[in-house]
């Protein structure tokens, strides 16, 4: 078990290094001089050169990479060009908000997805299955940013039940678990939960159908055990995979939250990313992407190890 975890870690490290290289290169694939947004347009060639040296852009790329990596390792992600604040500071505020939104959405999606998937798998090829499966297809096909807009139209514009944007009354920065705050969370979380709902439902349906067709279940049925007893076995066998899918979905939501955060002006990493893109703030862009991608890489690792701990049959090569 521990050996397996260690093996996975050794395998993941080069990938993590690769991810950091891709993030580093983002500055360099951006068209134009990376300094263009800091320099005044009438800067003399002399000043240009001076600043280039100050930012370290005169050194060869590999050297630049290692300097950058060293800084990042110490928590220094550089300075945002637009605000002049440290990128790490901006990130710290945003990550918490995104994490909360994604976790709540994942839980909603997981519960609903399991429900639909279970029902569909148990009553396979019946009308119930068709309906549940259709809902899961809708879940994976709907453009979630549009769904967010539609929910805002219904619940904010027409019914006026829930707020359309923001993460708290009066744009307050501190989150609290009271109704005034939670009502801001409902629409974005429900919108976001649609994707994991669809995927979890599809996975669980396939799992349940597969388990039900296996010999040991036939055996249990032959022994006269059904319903509750069989259900227990099915849950036990489906749980590791379903949980793994849930973990991966959390990672996808964290990385893909930008569209939903833009719709709801949710002050998380996605919103920050949107700002970075809009203002061509490349250090901020780089920092946000690096943190989200690394989170995803190590979440994957954690899910993988956890899954093999729960179910020793699945040790991925």
């Amino acid at each position: 078990m521990l050996l397996y975890a260690l093996k996975r870690l050794i395998y993941v490290l080069p990938v993590a290094v690769g991810v950091s290289i891709v993030c580093f290169m983002l500055v360099h694939i951006a068209p134009g001089d990376p300094l263009i947004s800091v320099l005044p347009p009438d800067a003399s060639a002399d000043l240009r050169e001076q600043i280039r040296r100050a930012y370290g852009f005169d050194k060869p790329l590999p050297v630049q990479y290692f300097i950058w990596l060293g800084n990042v390792m110490q928590g220094d992600f550089g300075t945002s060009i637009a605000t002049g604040r440290a990128v790490a500071e901006e990130l710290a505020k945003a990550v918490g908000n995104t994490l909360m939104l994604s976790v709540v959405a994942t839980i909603i999606g997981f519960v609903l997805g399991c429900l639909f998937g279970f029902v569909a798998g148990f009553f396979r090829d019946t009308a119930v299955d068709k309906i549940a499966s259709f809902i899961s297809v809708i879940g994976v096909s709907v453009p979630h940013y549009w769904l967010g807009m539609v929910l805002v139209i219904i619940f904010s514009v027409q019914l006026n039940w829930l707020p359309a944007t923001g993460a708290g009354p009066g744009g307050s920065g501190v989150w609290e678990w009271d109704w005034a705050h939670v009502r801001h969370l409902i629409l974005p979380a429900v919108t976001m939960s649609v994707i994991p709902m669809g995927i979890v439902a599809r996975t669980v349906r396939a799992l349940v159908a597969d388990i039900l067709s296996q010999e040991f279940v036939q055996g249990l049925k032959a022994k006269g055990l059904f319903d509750r007893g069989v259900l227990r076995h099915v849950v036990k066998n489906a749980a590791p995979t379903a949980l793994a899918v849930m973990g991966l979905q959390l990672g996808y939501l964290l990385g893909g939250s930008i569209l939903i955060e833009t719709v709801f002006s949710w002050p998380g990493t996605g919103f920050l990313l949107g700002q970075a893109i809009f203002q061509r703030d490349i250090p901020l862009l780089q920092g946000v992407i690096l943190v989200l991608a690394m989170f995803f890489v190590f979440l994957n690792l954690a899910v993988d190890v956890m899954q093999s701990a729960l179910d020793p049959r699945v040790q991925r090569s």
Partner: peptide, 24 residues
């Protein structure tokens, strides 16, 4: 395949936005 894994390690939405965000 290890090179492919690096790009696969990004959530797809994030990678698409990172690349087109940098490219403009």
């Amino acid at each position: 395949m290890r090179t492919v894994d690096v790009f696969y390690a990004f959530p797809s939405v994030l990678l698409a936005i990172a690349l087109s965000g940098a490219l403009g």
